[in-house]
Amino acid sequence: MSAALDIASWVLLVGGALLMTIGALGLIRLPDFFTRLHAAGVVDTGGAGLLLLGMALQTGFDLVTVKLVLIGLVLALTAPTASHAVAHSALLGGLSPDDPSANRAGDGRDEAPD
């Protein structure tokens, strides 16, 4: 394994893991449900993509690499679908993207125990 590949995968792995941490931070910091959806997008695309790329550089470019590509493909197909499903359910469940203050409370169906 050449040194250049090692350095590149270091950068990609740490960058991807940092993006995941920032995405998780966004999940905590952003003020309402609809803005938090975008933090999830960073984890699903940037974080996962960079980590998988960094791992792919450490393989011998064989079937293991193909499996990493397949994981990336599955994530790229399912992650936006799951995000859309959560967002659409929230819209049907009464959360409003135009009125952020309404999204901070419970939705009336069940009261949060905290």
């Binding site: 959806l37 975008h38 695309t45 995000s83 659409h88």
Partner: peptide
């Protein structure tokens, strides 16, 4: 949805 910053509702 895959592009962070925009989500289809």
């Amino acid at each position: 949805t895959l592009t962070p910053g925009t989500v289809s509702l």
